[in-house]
Design a binder for these strands. Structure first.
Lengths: 343, 343
DNA sequence: TTGTATGCGTTATCAT
DNA sequence: ATGATAACGCATACAA
């Protein structure tokens, strides 16, 4: 192994040794300055930083990783890389990590146990320094075990364990807001399009709807409940099913915006106008929801901020801090898809 | 440096040496089997593969990278990690890379020269084996230079260079399809909402619209041209501007679906119905466009397939092959936002 | 405070 | 066909 660098035209990338030589110090000193792992005299520090600048030196992440150092990367398990909902969270994570010279490693679990497990293994194999799980299906136990290896931040559930931090959405509260808004407008017969029964977000949103109705003295009617799949097509179909049952209603809450879009279409084909005949409320406030016709009243989740928070928390965990739990509150955004009930 | 592994409860991860010892061969032989870099006797191969399975051995990517091997990762420069349009491409890339045991490293350039340059530097620093650029603003020269270091696949332009492969969308053809569709329905006064003037996709789509009109003997009216920004709000504003000019038209083409959504809203607030009063055509066929009201007629770009193609091509480049250029054709998806012009 | 030496897990070179 | 061994670039225990 004599010559590893055949392209003599390209300037050889600088390494620790070269910086050390240029600054007249030992490689160890350069490393120490890079990591702030020990005090170094002002003189040498200046010399080294000068050399780093001149040579445009950037430490090799692979070498760092191999030597037992950090990879400066955080694994992010999402459901689908192109999820309209978690997309903003990904952006928040990316932005925050970048500020701290970290990079995200995104992987998709496809809302499937096996895939999630496999992708997490892959991320750990790649030696990510921490892991962010955006609402997976993995058991709490699996997450806690993972947290014994690396810091874990998980959304969509409440879980207390060492080296782990969970951020839960206020799904129940969000649904309650939606119901209250509609009741405030005089609606009594309120249909609900739910998400997949095995999805925690879906369960909590459904529960909030039922609980708030009951607390207002209204008995939830199962005939007014349709089960979707958090996607447009599912929302459309669920709405059609409810319509076919013939039980009258004056408002609909969909457990996410995508299903609200689909429901809106089903209502249209049934000859019902929104909001004249039926009021419609979504959940999530996707960027697009301000531009539907009519603009959609919905429950806002600050997803971008949640992404930022998840990344910040992961970084804190990495530094040994135990961040203080934060409640992520939902908020109702009233637009034009809801109005006062007719008599 | 005596003890590096303080958690004695966790089973130590296996490495090449351990596998070699267990199989009774040298580490070099294990490496050869792993990489297929030389012929190995059947006996030893079986022994080694047995040992690998027993020890659940997985090669360390960092060590591979450091030793000059591949990182088994491909850098992907996109504009925004949550772009509704490129999202599907990201999924295609991820799916394809995964089949080949590669992982994507996503980075966002924010449609900004400096960011793009910085993110590409970062990706190269992380030693990605190849680079996929989803329609950036970088100069051809920069891309060609990058391709001297690692294989590059770039979408949204046509560029011939060694170690580089470009995939261009048929933007012009797509616009022509839209115009032909409308003219076929009897429309003559066709407005156009364009994208940012400095965006290649936007330029080509605008050009196709103008060229097709001319070829049909219709002179494009600048009064019917509004400039948006490829987002909903921009499309809405551009449409309002055109409406304010008072020049009559019976159809609108938006240079992407997001602007079509915005335009549809502006038309609504102006008291114009789609498609009764005005026909509307989008561009991209976002997943959502089948569920707008009315469902949007649009020009389909097979983005997921383009993502897959980009990844496959990058992998081919990596193996020294020079893939054959492919034309990505656009396709008109006729839904309910267009209809025959009234007289 | 600073330098020296070693090891991280793999690939590639050379010799057999 | 196979083995021994030197890199790869960095962090760190230890010596000074």
């Amino acid at each position: 192994m004599k010559k590893r660098n055949p392209n003599n035209d390209l300037p050889q990338r600088a390494n620790l040794a070269m910086v050390a030589a240029r600054a007249g110090v030992s490689p160890a000193t350069v490393s120490r300055i890079l990591n702030g792992s020990a005090r170094v005299s002002e003189t040498k520090r200046n010399a080294v930083q000068g050399a780093i600048a001149e040579l445009q030196f950037r430490p090799d992440p692979a070498a760092r990783s191999l030597a037992g150092g950090r990879t400066m990367s955080v694994g992010v398990l999402t459901q689908f890389i192109d999820s309209p909902f978690y997309g903003e969270a990904l952006r928040g994570i990316e932005d925050t990590l970048q500020e701290h010279q970290y990079v995200p490693l995104f992987a998709s679990g496809h809302w499937n146990d096996d895939d999630e497990r496999a992708r997490i293994s892959l991320l750990i194999e790649r030696k990510v320094d921490a892991l962010i799980v955006l609402t997976g299906r993995l058991s709490n136990q699996t997450l806690v075990e993972t947290a014994r290896k690396i810091p874990v931040v998980v959304t969509g559930r409440q879980l207390v364990a060492s080296n782990l931090f969970s951020i839960d959405f206020d799904n129940e509260g969000g649904s309650r807001l939606a119901v209250r808004h509609l009741i405030g407008l005089g609606h009594q017969k309120i249909a609900f399009i739910s998400g997949p029964a095995d999805h925690p977000d879906a369960q909590q949103r459904l529960f909030g709807y039922q609980a708030e109705l009951r607390s207002r003295g209204i008995l939830p009617d199962v005939q007014l409940l349709g089960e979707g799949n958090f996607q447009e097509a599912g929302g459309k179909q669920a709405m059609s099913t409810v319509l076919r049952r013939g039980v009258p209603f004056s408002a609909v809450i969909a457990a996410n915006d995508q299903m609200a879009y689909g429901a809106r279409l089903a209502l249209h084909f049934a000859g019902l106008r929104v909001p004249e005949d039926v009021s419609l409320v979504g959940f999530d406030d996707l960027p697009h929801s301000a531009f539907t016709l009519p603009p959609l009243t919905t429950v806002r989740q600050p997803v971008y901020e949640i992404g930022k928070l998840a990344a910040e928390t992961a970084l804190m965990l990495l530094n040994g801090a135990m961040p203080e739990p934060l409640l992520i509150e939902a908020q109702l955004v009233a637009r034009e898809s809801t109005r006062i009930a007719r008599h």
